[in-house]
Write a protein that binds this DNA or RNA. Sequence first.
DNA 1: ATGTGACTTACAGTCCGTG
DNA 2: CCACGGACTGTAAGTCACA
Lengths: 75, 75
Amino acid sequence: MEKNSNILVHFGIQVKFYRQQKGLSQEALAHRASLHRTYIGMIERAEKNITLLNIEKIANALEVSISQLCDNSDG
Amino acid sequence: MEKNSNILVHFGIQVKFYRQQKGLSQEALAHRASLHRTYIGMIERAEKNITLLNIEKIANALEVSISQLCDNSDG
DNA sequence: ATGTGACTTACAGTCCGTG
DNA sequence: CCACGGACTGTAAGTCACA
């Protein structure tokens, strides 16, 4: 229940979850978010400390709010 | 209606609002968040594209959720 | 269709000082 | 205390070839 503090891991998991829920491949999501396909992969694997502008791009591409991607459990 | 997409501006405004509500100076907040004092100023003025790790630091220092800092009026 | 190392360029983030 | 300029260091951004 304690978060790793690794909000990046959590973020990546959420991206992957919402992406698959929409039946999108990393490639397709990358296209919708105007980002590179390998970059999406890196985000999902929490290898990059993403910036707010790109967080928004992905949230929009996934049609979810930023809160849905970042929020853990309203800690 | 269109958002400016300027989430950075919105974020900066929220940081300033919650900071002042707690009666903290930029310096004091910087200290609590383990960030530099000039950096907090830059964020409030939307001059920097902050990363997720620092978003979390600031949210914790302000004792608010990330949603409260990022969420617009996403409909 | 995804993971990974290597790579270059742009900028996040720190520190000094001024008014 | 805060806004702002300049210089600097570290790392995110963005891409590719190949597994």
